[in-house]
Design a protein around this nucleic acid. Structure first.
Lengths: 353, 353
DNA sequence: CTTTAGCACTCTCACTCTTTGAGTGCTAAG
DNA sequence: CTTAGCACTCAAAGAGTGAGAGTGCTAAAG
């Protein structure tokens, strides 16, 4: 395994990503970074195939990278182009940092931006709500016998649910209920919203008044919502434009997204590239997935990434994901003051192309 | 144009919908409802082709219906099977009538149900919020310098938006602002939320305090949200399983859904079947769209329908749409009391297949 | 006048056979 | 170790063929 073989492997990956066609020795020999004859390239490619980094779709075709080939390329060979200042600014404006009042919004924007930039499906598993605190619970009457429960967390996520009761509550009942909820839930960390706690609450409430049971049920549902990781997808439709992905498999994937969460929530740090072969048999064939964790106060609180064809411009895409996860980490970790001061740069979103 | 020709046309449509293959004279002659020879059928088919109701993909193939053929079939020939009591109950349970506390939820459920039942994309354009009244406006502080505006309408739809201010508000400021909003917005019909009204509000607020401008802006955005028709889609992915729809066109359609609103909001009553040729050049080729209005208090307040391949079992699907729009009309028009009394039937959602 | 049987005709689809060209592996010489 | 040369392989594209489905037309029968 010498220098030149690695160069050839890198060239095969890059050519194949660019054209989608198996790469032959002639084309490689013509590349400026390779100055040996086609015959030499052939010898090297045969060796690379022996080592499991390349394969041939059929005898008389060029070579394409194997999974190991991609992995070696990603880990050691690719040279991601550094991002220019303008590029960073463009990414920032897509994040709409200044407009995003809440973490949730910020993360949503990141997902949309990633999907658009990479033309892949973007995914975020956000379990930061788990590390936030319930800052407000309200019960608001609206219409006949309908009540809205409102739940706000310190991270700014807002959940609500309308419940219909059998009878209208009197003012006293309502204020008692509201007060009780505030007292018992506000200030509680979301991760402490155990089933046990909710059961106690339910018991206490039911004792007071049967009629409220839909409300109590509503609260339980909301708390369950909060506790589980929010899985957000954007741009799944992008996948349909890739020829090497099977349309039916994409549909199946879209319908069974939840299965992804176990992959996303795997504990690891930094960035990770997964290929379909890595045991995750449910994913789309010929697809790969790039995920990166983001942190808050030193803890991993979520992961964001993309799912696309294996034939992906990793050198371009990985820096994007790294940049976004780093930016999100910065923005949600530090108190928002300083990031707001940047606001006077006032580079407002000119619509990009 | 005689009885028999119509029978043949209907048979062609039904066979083609069933098999997806062009229908030949032999197959038709074998049908029980047609008791003439294949030669006679051929003569009639030639006539039907002359009249523009049928066409041949190529000389030696069977016939398929043209758009006019479908239209004639739908308007005069098809015999929708009446729905059995169980079928109605199944539909009702998919609507989850008893669980749906708000109109919005009800309509969402209808969309999901339609998408699943018909295996098409289901769409709803709901402009009932326009006819409701703002029943509650609140401003809730949450976290440092972040405030959530909450807006609830009499129809039970809940909108919220988080805004970040430059400074924290004092308690007086907050309660003054809250009070001002309540006084000026609660009880107002959404359709009266003119730009003018909002401008007055803005002016009044700004005079009071510059610092609140993001909040005021937030309110304006929310009111704009409310005023515009909510367009909701479900099951777009279903479309990908139809062979006669072009995948790329589906993607384009998914990306430009908004263009549909003008079709959906067209004023008409009852049910309507549109084909791609009806001037709506942007829709997917070979697709058709079935829409029905639903009403509230005698007024059209929204439309729901499906988009699918032209080759669709209209006789089955149209009754579904009619049933849903009628049911929604009933449920949102009459005061909810009586519909709730049905609740004791207690046919709770056993998960359907 | 309408319906039907018969027949020649057309056109697609599936199959096979052939050609072409890209790309390879191997060998022998530089 | 590198390179030119050459025989070999294989997929993709094209051409030819036969089968089958379906048609339109004609002439006879009802």
């Amino acid at each position: 395994m010498n220098e030149r073989k690695l160069k050839i492997l890198a060239a095969v990956v890059e050519e194949y990503v660019r054209t989608g066609e198996p790469v032959g020795s002639k084309i490689l020999a013509a590349l400026p970074e390779i100055n040996v004859s086609a015959a030499t390239v052939r010898n090297d490619m045969a060796a690379l195939e022996q080592l499991g980094y390349l394969e041939q779709p059929h005898t008389s075709a060029g070579r394409i990278p194997t999974v190991s080939g991609y992995r070696l390329y990603i880990e050691q060979l690719m040279r991601p182009p550094g991002m220019s200042q303008e590029e960073k600014q463009k990414l920032d404006s897509m994040l709409a940092i200044h407009g995003s009042a809440t973490e949730e919004l910020l993360i949503q924007n990141a997902t949309t931006a990633l999907a658009e930039l990479t033309q892949c499906a973007a995914v975020v598993s956000d379990f930061s709500p788990q590390f936030s605190v319930i800052s407000k619970v309200e019960v608001i009457p609206t219409g006949k016998r309908v009540y809205v429960i409102l739940l706000i967390t310190s991270a700014g996520s807002i959940k609500n649910k309308a419940c219909r009761l059998e009878f209208d509550l009197t003012n006293e009942q309502l204020s008692w209920f509201s007060g009780y909820l505030s007292e018992n839930l506000e200030g509680i960390s979301v991760s402490d919203l155990s089933d046990e706690l909710m059961e106690n609450l339910t018991a206490a409430m039911s004792a007071y008044m049967m009629a409220m049971s839909p409300l109590v049920q509503g609260i339980c549902e909301l708390s369950r919502d909060l506790r589980q990781h929010a899985l957000l997808f954007k741009g799944e439709k992008n996948l349909f434009s890739y020829q090497d992905l099977d349309k039916m498999e994409i549909v199946r994937f879209i319908e069974h997204k939840d299965e992804l969460s176990r992959l996303l929530d795997d504990s690891f740090s930094g960035i990770k590239v997964l290929f379909r072969e890595d045991k995750n048999s449910f994913v789309i064939g010929n697809s790969s997935m790039i995920v990166s964790k983001y942190r808050k106060g030193g803890k991993n609180v979520g992961s964001l990434g993309i799912i696309g064809p294996m034939r992906l411009d990793y050198a371009k895409v990985i820096p994007y994901i790294e940049y976004f996860s780093q930016k999100i980490t910065d923005l949600i970790s530090e108190p928002p003051e300083p990031s707001l001061e940047e606001g006077h740069i006032k580079k407002e979103g000119e619509p990009h192309d």
